[in-house]
Write a protein that binds this DNA or RNA. Structure first.
Lengths: 207, 207
DNA sequence: GCCATCATGTAATCTGTTACATGATTAT
DNA sequence: ATAATCATGTAACAGATTACATGATGGC
C-alpha cells in the first residue's frame, strides 16, 4: 500500500540513463520541473534504498579534482517495477491551489485587492507560457530523433494547455471583478437589486 | 517566514461563520474540496493554537445525546491576519502531476498502455466536469443573495477551465499516441538505455 | 446486531524541505 | 577575494495522513 511517488520518479529518471544523485537533481530541474521536483534530502536516501531493494546498482567513477561520482543504473527488476507503476491508472490527488483559496475568501477584502491578486497571477502565467513555448522549441531541436521526444512533448503540451486555460480564467475573473467594483464603488446612483447586501465594511484602524 | 497554509485555510473558513472542528472538515469537503482539503490531524491542533495566538475564541455548546460542540469564532486580530494573507500575492508551488510524470516515461511501456492511461484520465475529467457544472447550478440556487457567491463561483470556474483544458489535452495526446501505434506496428524496438543527454559517440567505423 | 453520524482528540508515521558539513576547482 | 559548480550526504524541522481511542444515538 505504501506508494512512494518519489521512488517512481527516480526509477523513471534512471530509465533514461545511468545517473548520479547530482545528475538527477539537475535533470529534474531541467525537464520535469514544471510538474515534479525532488530535493537532495529525498534523492540520496532513496537511491540507497533502491540499491538495497535490488532495483538499482551503484558504480563509482573516480574523477580528478572533483568528488567521486556515484552512478546508479536500473536493474531489470527496477525497470519492471517502474513499468508496473506506469501502467496502473494515475490517481489524482487534490492539489492545493493557493490562488483559488484566496479568491474563495475574496469577500473579506476589497475587490481592488482581488484584482491585483489575479493580475499578478496572470502575469506569472504569461511568463510561464512563454517559457513553455521556448522549452518546446529547444526540445524539438535538441531531442530530435530521441525516442522519448514525443512523450516529453506531451508533458510540455500539458503545461501549455493548463497555462492557457489559466490565462483565459484570469480574463474572465478580472471582468467579473471589475464589474463588481463598478457597482459598489463608482457612480453608484442607485443599485437596483443585487446590491451589496451583506457587505459590511469592517472599519478597523490598522494597528 | 513560516507560512502555514492550513492556518490561513482555517482562518478563512472561520471568516464565513463560527464553526466546530467537525463542521470545518465537512465544509471543506463540501465546498473547496476541489482545490483544498484538511484532515482532523491538522484541524484540531491548529484550532487550539489559533486560540492561544488570539486569532480565534472558543465556546462550548452542550448538546443532549451528542458530544459537546467546541465552536470557534474569529477575533478581529484573526480577521486581520487573514486579510493580510489574502492580499499578498499567491505563490505558486509546483504541484506534482502524476499523469504527466507517467507519460514522461511513456516510452518504457507500450503505446497502448499510454492510451489506456490517458483514456482513463479523460473519463475521470469528464465526470469531474459534470460534477462542477452541477455544483455551479446548486450554488447559484442555494447561495443566491449570499455576498460570497461571486467569489465561490470564480473558484468553480477555475476548476471548469482546468478540466476543460485537460479534456482538450487528452484528445490531442490520444491522437498523437494513436498515430504512434500505427507507425510502430511492425518492429517493436526495445531501447535499453543511453541517451537523453550526453550521447558521446566518437569514431565510428565507416560504412 | 451492525453500521453510520455526531464529535472530540492524539500518536504514529510518512513525506518533504532547508540548512548544514565538507572540500577541491574554476571563473570573475 | 569570492562566488559558483561539482558532488556527496545527514539532521533537523515542517507538513500532512492514517489509524486509533472514546462513546452516545438512531436507522436498517
Amino acid at each position: 500500500m505504501k506508494e512512494n511517488k518519489s521512488k517512481y520518479a527516480i526509477l523513471g529518471i534512471l530509465s533514461l540513463g545511468s545517473l548520479s544523485g547530482y545528475d538527477i537533481k539537475k535533470l529534474f530541474q531541467g525537464s520535469v520541473a514544471n510538474f515534479w521536483n525532488e530535493s537532495y534530502g529525498q534523492i540520496y536516501p532513496l537511491l540507497r534504498t533502491l540499491v538495497i531493494e535490488g532495483l538499482a546498482t551503484r558504480s563509482i567513477e573516480r574523477q580528478v579534482g572533483k568528488p567521486d561520482r556515484h552512478v546508479y543504473s536500473l536493474t531489470d527488476r527496477g525497470r519492471d517495477e517502474l513499468c508496473r507503476w506506469l501502467i496502473e491508472p494515475a490517481k489524482d490527488q487534490i492539489g492545493r491551489i493557493e490562488i483559488a483559496l484566496k479568491l474563495f475568501f475574496g469577500h473579506q477584502v476589497k475587490a481592488a485587492d482581488n484584482i491585483r491578486q489575479v493580475e499578478h497571477f496572470r502575469e506569472m502565467r504569461g511568463r510561464e507560457l512563454q517559457a513553455l513555448i521556448a522549452i518546446e522549441k529547444r526540445l524539438k531541436a535538441e531531442l530530435a530523433s530521441n525516442p522519448n521526444l514525443p512523450y516529453v512533448l506531451m508533458t510540455v503540451s500539458y503545461g501549455q494547455h493548463m497555462t492557457q486555460a489559466l490565462l483565459q480564467w484570469c480574463e474572465e475573473t478580472l471582468s467579473v471583478l471589475s464589474t463588481m467594483t463598478a457597482k459598489t464603488k463608482k457612480g453608484n446612483k442607485r443599485v437596483t437589486k443585487q446590491s451589496v447586501r451583506g457587505k459590511k465594511r469592517r472599519s478597523r484602524p490598522s494597528q
